[in-house]
Design a protein around this nucleic acid. Structure first.
Length: 270
DNA sequence: AAAGACACCTGTCCGC
DNA sequence: TGCGGACAGGTGTCTT
Protein backbone atom coordinates (compact mmCIF):
# COMPACT_ATOMS: atom_id res chain seq x y z
CA UNK A 1 0.00 0.00 0.00
CA UNK A 2 2.25 2.74 1.15
CA UNK A 3 5.09 4.63 -0.41
CA UNK A 4 7.00 7.43 1.28
CA UNK A 5 4.12 9.95 1.38
CA UNK A 6 1.75 7.46 2.98
CA UNK A 7 4.35 6.40 5.55
CA UNK A 8 5.16 10.04 6.31
CA UNK A 9 1.45 10.84 6.61
CA UNK A 10 1.11 7.96 9.04
CA UNK A 11 4.14 9.16 11.01
CA UNK A 12 2.77 12.69 11.33
CA UNK A 13 -0.61 11.46 12.40
CA UNK A 14 0.82 9.11 15.01
CA UNK A 15 3.70 11.15 16.41
CA UNK A 16 1.66 13.42 18.74
CA UNK A 17 0.00 10.35 20.24
CA UNK A 18 3.14 8.27 20.84
CA UNK A 19 6.00 10.71 21.46
CA UNK A 20 6.70 10.90 25.19
CA UNK A 21 4.33 8.02 25.96
CA UNK A 22 5.28 4.85 27.75
CA UNK A 23 4.42 1.54 26.09
CA UNK A 24 2.52 -0.53 28.62
CA UNK A 25 2.04 -3.61 26.52
CA UNK A 26 2.81 -5.08 23.12
CA UNK A 27 -0.08 -7.34 22.13
CA UNK A 28 0.83 -9.73 19.31
CA UNK A 29 -2.11 -11.70 17.94
CA UNK A 30 -0.35 -12.76 14.73
CA UNK A 31 3.46 -12.89 14.89
CA UNK A 32 3.84 -14.26 11.38
CA UNK A 33 4.43 -11.19 9.23
CA UNK A 34 7.05 -11.00 6.49
CA UNK A 35 9.40 -12.30 9.15
CA UNK A 36 8.27 -13.55 12.54
CA UNK A 37 8.12 -10.71 15.05
CA UNK A 38 11.26 -11.35 17.16
CA UNK A 39 10.91 -11.98 20.87
CA UNK A 40 13.29 -9.05 21.37
CA UNK A 41 10.50 -6.68 20.24
CA UNK A 42 9.09 -7.14 23.74
CA UNK A 43 11.98 -4.87 24.68
CA UNK A 44 9.71 -1.92 23.96
CA UNK A 45 7.43 -2.81 26.86
CA UNK A 46 7.85 -0.34 29.71
CA UNK A 47 9.92 2.02 27.59
CA UNK A 48 9.09 5.61 26.69
CA UNK A 49 8.97 6.46 22.97
CA UNK A 50 11.28 9.45 22.61
CA UNK A 51 10.42 10.03 18.96
CA UNK A 52 8.63 8.52 15.98
CA UNK A 53 10.91 8.82 12.99
CA UNK A 54 10.96 7.58 9.40
CA UNK A 55 13.73 6.12 7.26
CA UNK A 56 12.54 5.34 3.75
CA UNK A 57 9.32 3.40 4.22
CA UNK A 58 10.29 2.27 7.73
CA UNK A 59 8.80 3.79 10.86
CA UNK A 60 11.13 4.00 13.86
CA UNK A 61 9.69 3.99 17.39
CA UNK A 62 12.74 5.15 19.31
CA UNK A 63 13.28 4.30 22.96
CA UNK A 64 16.40 4.52 25.13
CA UNK A 65 17.50 0.86 24.87
CA UNK A 66 16.38 0.22 21.31
CA UNK A 67 14.08 0.97 18.40
CA UNK A 68 10.99 -0.82 17.14
CA UNK A 69 11.18 -0.89 13.33
CA UNK A 70 7.86 -1.16 11.51
CA UNK A 71 7.22 -1.57 7.78
CA UNK A 72 3.72 -1.40 6.30
CA UNK A 73 4.48 -3.62 3.30
CA UNK A 74 1.79 -3.55 0.60
CA UNK A 75 -1.36 -3.57 2.69
CA UNK A 76 -0.37 -2.47 6.19
CA UNK A 77 -1.79 0.46 8.11
CA UNK A 78 -1.61 1.96 11.59
CA UNK A 79 -4.45 3.61 13.47
CA UNK A 80 -4.58 5.40 16.79
CA UNK A 81 -7.57 4.27 18.81
CA UNK A 82 -8.78 6.00 21.96
CA UNK A 83 -10.41 2.81 23.18
CA UNK A 84 -9.82 -0.82 22.22
CA UNK A 85 -12.57 -2.15 19.96
CA UNK A 86 -12.46 -5.93 19.55
CA UNK A 87 -9.84 -6.80 16.95
CA UNK A 88 -10.91 -7.82 13.46
CA UNK A 89 -9.40 -10.46 11.21
CA UNK A 90 -6.16 -8.70 10.24
CA UNK A 91 -5.53 -6.59 13.33
CA UNK A 92 -2.23 -8.30 14.16
CA UNK A 93 -0.57 -6.08 16.76
CA UNK A 94 -1.50 -3.42 19.35
CA UNK A 95 0.88 -1.05 21.11
CA UNK A 96 -0.90 -0.09 24.32
CA UNK A 97 0.16 3.33 25.58
CA UNK A 98 0.07 4.79 29.08
CA UNK A 99 -2.40 7.41 27.82
CA UNK A 100 -4.96 4.66 27.44
CA UNK A 101 -4.82 4.94 23.66
CA UNK A 102 -3.42 2.24 21.45
CA UNK A 103 -1.70 1.98 18.10
CA UNK A 104 -3.20 -0.85 16.06
CA UNK A 105 -1.33 -2.51 13.17
CA UNK A 106 -3.55 -4.03 10.49
CA UNK A 107 -2.14 -5.87 7.49
CA UNK A 108 -4.22 -8.33 5.40
CA UNK A 109 -1.37 -9.53 3.19
CA UNK A 110 1.22 -9.66 5.98
CA UNK A 111 4.05 -8.30 3.83
CA UNK A 112 4.68 -5.82 6.62
CA UNK A 113 7.30 -6.30 9.31
CA UNK A 114 8.04 -5.48 12.93
CA UNK A 115 11.66 -5.76 14.07
CA UNK A 116 13.78 -4.59 16.97
CA UNK A 117 17.24 -3.07 16.95
CA UNK A 118 19.18 -2.22 20.11
CA UNK A 119 21.34 0.89 19.98
CA UNK A 120 21.52 2.71 16.67
CA UNK A 121 18.57 1.59 14.50
CA UNK A 122 20.31 2.65 11.29
CA UNK A 123 22.76 -0.23 11.75
CA UNK A 124 19.99 -2.78 11.31
CA UNK A 125 20.64 -4.87 8.16
CA UNK A 126 17.32 -3.72 6.68
CA UNK A 127 18.32 -0.06 6.98
CA UNK A 128 22.09 -0.13 6.66
CA UNK A 129 22.26 -0.20 2.87
CA UNK A 130 19.44 2.20 2.04
CA UNK A 131 20.08 5.09 -0.32
CA UNK A 132 19.52 8.76 0.53
CA UNK A 133 16.20 10.30 1.51
CA UNK A 134 14.67 11.92 -1.59
CA UNK A 135 13.70 15.02 0.41
CA UNK A 136 17.22 15.51 1.76
CA UNK A 137 20.04 17.64 0.35
CA UNK A 138 22.22 14.69 -0.64
CA UNK A 139 19.62 13.57 -3.16
CA UNK A 140 20.53 15.40 -6.36
CA UNK A 141 20.50 14.92 -10.11
CA UNK A 142 24.28 14.57 -10.08
CA UNK A 143 24.00 11.79 -7.53
CA UNK A 144 21.49 9.89 -9.70
CA UNK A 145 23.62 10.45 -12.76
CA UNK A 146 26.76 9.14 -11.05
CA UNK A 147 25.03 6.02 -9.70
CA UNK A 148 23.41 5.21 -13.04
CA UNK A 149 26.50 5.11 -15.26
CA UNK A 150 26.71 1.87 -17.25
CA UNK A 151 23.43 0.64 -15.85
CA UNK A 152 21.09 -0.79 -18.43
CA UNK A 153 18.07 -1.39 -16.22
CA UNK A 154 15.01 0.72 -17.09
CA UNK A 155 15.14 4.09 -15.33
CA UNK A 156 11.86 3.25 -13.59
CA UNK A 157 13.44 0.21 -11.92
CA UNK A 158 16.48 2.31 -11.09
CA UNK A 159 14.56 4.96 -9.11
CA UNK A 160 12.51 2.27 -7.36
CA UNK A 161 15.70 0.62 -6.08
CA UNK A 162 15.94 1.41 -2.37
CA UNK A 163 19.72 1.27 -2.42
CA UNK A 164 19.66 4.17 -4.92
CA UNK A 165 16.95 6.29 -3.30
CA UNK A 166 14.34 5.33 -0.70
CA UNK A 167 10.61 5.82 -0.70
CA UNK A 168 9.82 5.87 -4.43
CA UNK A 169 7.32 3.10 -5.15
CA UNK A 170 5.25 2.16 -8.16
CA UNK A 171 2.82 5.10 -8.07
CA UNK A 172 5.31 7.90 -7.55
CA UNK A 173 7.93 6.45 -9.89
CA UNK A 174 5.37 6.59 -12.69
CA UNK A 175 4.23 10.08 -11.69
CA UNK A 176 7.75 11.50 -11.37
CA UNK A 177 8.84 10.09 -14.74
CA UNK A 178 5.78 11.61 -16.38
CA UNK A 179 6.49 14.97 -14.74
CA UNK A 180 10.11 14.77 -15.93
CA UNK A 181 9.14 13.70 -19.46
CA UNK A 182 11.31 10.59 -19.28
CA UNK A 183 10.21 7.27 -20.78
CA UNK A 184 10.09 4.62 -18.02
CA UNK A 185 11.82 2.03 -20.24
CA UNK A 186 14.81 4.24 -21.04
CA UNK A 187 18.03 2.69 -19.77
CA UNK A 188 19.17 4.35 -16.55
CA UNK A 189 22.62 4.85 -18.04
CA UNK A 190 21.14 6.63 -21.04
CA UNK A 191 19.58 9.54 -19.19
CA UNK A 192 21.69 12.70 -19.37
CA UNK A 193 23.07 14.55 -16.37
CA UNK A 194 20.79 17.45 -17.10
CA UNK A 195 17.68 15.29 -17.30
CA UNK A 196 18.60 13.60 -14.00
CA UNK A 197 18.58 17.09 -12.49
CA UNK A 198 15.01 17.49 -13.70
CA UNK A 199 14.06 13.99 -12.53
CA UNK A 200 15.45 14.56 -9.03
CA UNK A 201 13.38 17.75 -8.75
CA UNK A 202 10.27 15.99 -10.03
CA UNK A 203 10.66 13.12 -7.56
CA UNK A 204 11.00 15.63 -4.71
CA UNK A 205 8.02 17.68 -5.86
CA UNK A 206 5.71 14.75 -6.46
CA UNK A 207 6.49 13.27 -3.04
CA UNK A 208 6.18 16.65 -1.31
CA UNK A 209 2.84 17.38 -2.94
CA UNK A 210 1.55 13.92 -2.06
CA UNK A 211 2.54 14.43 1.58
CA UNK A 212 0.68 17.75 1.62
CA UNK A 213 -2.41 15.97 0.23
CA UNK A 214 -2.19 13.32 2.96
CA UNK A 215 -1.01 10.59 0.59
CA UNK A 216 -2.86 8.57 -2.04
CA UNK A 217 -5.91 6.55 -1.03
CA UNK A 218 -6.57 3.82 -3.59
CA UNK A 219 -8.32 1.19 -1.56
CA UNK A 220 -8.08 1.41 2.17
CA UNK A 221 -5.18 3.68 3.05
CA UNK A 222 -6.23 6.34 5.55
CA UNK A 223 -4.56 9.04 7.59
CA UNK A 224 -4.08 8.02 11.23
CA UNK A 225 -7.49 9.43 12.16
CA UNK A 226 -9.24 7.41 9.45
CA UNK A 227 -9.68 10.09 6.79
CA UNK A 228 -8.51 9.37 3.22
CA UNK A 229 -5.52 10.90 1.42
CA UNK A 230 -6.41 13.15 -1.47
CA UNK A 231 -3.49 12.71 -3.86
CA UNK A 232 -5.45 10.13 -5.90
CA UNK A 233 -7.23 12.97 -7.68
CA UNK A 234 -3.90 14.51 -8.67
CA UNK A 235 -2.48 11.38 -10.29
CA UNK A 236 -1.50 12.09 -13.89
CA UNK A 237 -0.71 8.58 -15.14
CA UNK A 238 -1.00 5.90 -12.45
CA UNK A 239 -4.24 3.98 -12.96
CA UNK A 240 -5.11 6.05 -16.06
CA UNK A 241 -4.21 3.47 -18.72
CA UNK A 242 -6.14 4.17 -21.93
CA UNK A 243 -7.23 7.64 -20.81
CA UNK A 244 -6.11 10.95 -22.29
CA UNK A 245 -2.74 12.45 -21.41
CA UNK A 246 -3.38 15.70 -19.57
CA UNK A 247 -0.60 17.39 -21.56
CA UNK A 248 -0.95 16.25 -25.17
CA UNK A 249 -4.36 14.59 -25.15
CA UNK A 250 -3.00 11.33 -26.60
CA UNK A 251 -3.78 7.94 -25.12
CA UNK A 252 -1.75 6.80 -22.12
CA UNK A 253 -0.09 3.41 -22.57
CA UNK A 254 0.38 0.49 -20.22
CA UNK A 255 3.39 -1.81 -19.96
CA UNK A 256 4.67 -4.22 -17.41
CA UNK A 257 8.17 -3.16 -16.37
CA UNK A 258 10.08 -5.17 -13.80
CA UNK A 259 6.86 -7.08 -13.09
CA UNK A 260 5.16 -3.86 -12.05
CA UNK A 261 2.28 -2.21 -13.86
CA UNK A 262 3.39 1.01 -15.54
CA UNK A 263 1.44 3.76 -17.28
CA UNK A 264 3.06 6.52 -19.33
CA UNK A 265 2.56 8.87 -22.26
CA UNK A 266 4.51 7.63 -25.31
CA UNK A 267 4.46 11.16 -26.77
CA UNK A 268 5.44 13.28 -23.75
CA UNK A 269 7.90 10.78 -22.29
CA UNK A 270 11.11 10.04 -24.17
C1' DA B 1 28.03 -6.60 -10.21
C1' DA B 2 23.73 -6.38 -12.22
C1' DA B 3 19.35 -7.92 -14.02
C1' DG B 4 15.35 -10.68 -13.86
C1' DA B 5 12.23 -14.06 -11.84
C1' DC B 6 10.10 -15.57 -7.81
C1' DA B 7 8.55 -15.66 -3.23
C1' DC B 8 5.63 -14.18 0.67
C1' DC B 9 -0.34 -13.50 1.51
C1' DT B 10 -5.16 -12.03 1.19
C1' DG B 11 -8.83 -9.32 -0.88
C1' DT B 12 -11.14 -7.58 -4.85
C1' DC B 13 -12.62 -7.31 -9.36
C1' DC B 14 -13.74 -9.04 -13.97
C1' DG B 15 -15.26 -12.32 -17.36
C1' DC B 16 -17.60 -16.52 -18.21
C1' DT C 1 -24.72 -16.68 -8.19
C1' DG C 2 -20.29 -19.04 -8.35
C1' DC C 3 -15.69 -19.81 -9.80
C1' DG C 4 -11.09 -19.20 -11.85
C1' DG C 5 -7.65 -16.04 -12.85
C1' DA C 6 -5.45 -11.64 -12.87
C1' DC C 7 -4.08 -8.00 -10.19
C1' DA C 8 -2.75 -4.89 -6.07
C1' DG C 9 0.82 0.78 -3.14
C1' DG C 10 7.02 -3.81 -1.32
C1' DT C 11 11.29 -5.89 -1.32
C1' DG C 12 14.57 -9.78 0.07
C1' DT C 13 16.54 -13.75 -2.07
C1' DC C 14 17.83 -16.80 -5.52
C1' DT C 15 19.28 -17.73 -10.29
C1' DT C 16 21.31 -16.34 -14.44
Amino acid sequence: MPELPEVETTRRGLAPHVAGRRVQELIVRQPHLRWPIPASAEGITGQTVSALERRGKWLLFRTRPGTLLLHLGMSGSLRVLATAPSPKAHDHVDLVLDSGALVRFTDPRRFGAILWQPGNPLTHPMLARLGPEPLSDDFTGDYLWRRSRKRRTPVKNFIMDGSIVVGVGNIYAAEALFAAGIHPLRGAGRVSRERYGILASCIREVLQRAILAGGTTLRDFTVADGSPGYFAQELQVYGRDGQACRICGGLLKHRTIGQRSTVYCPVCQR
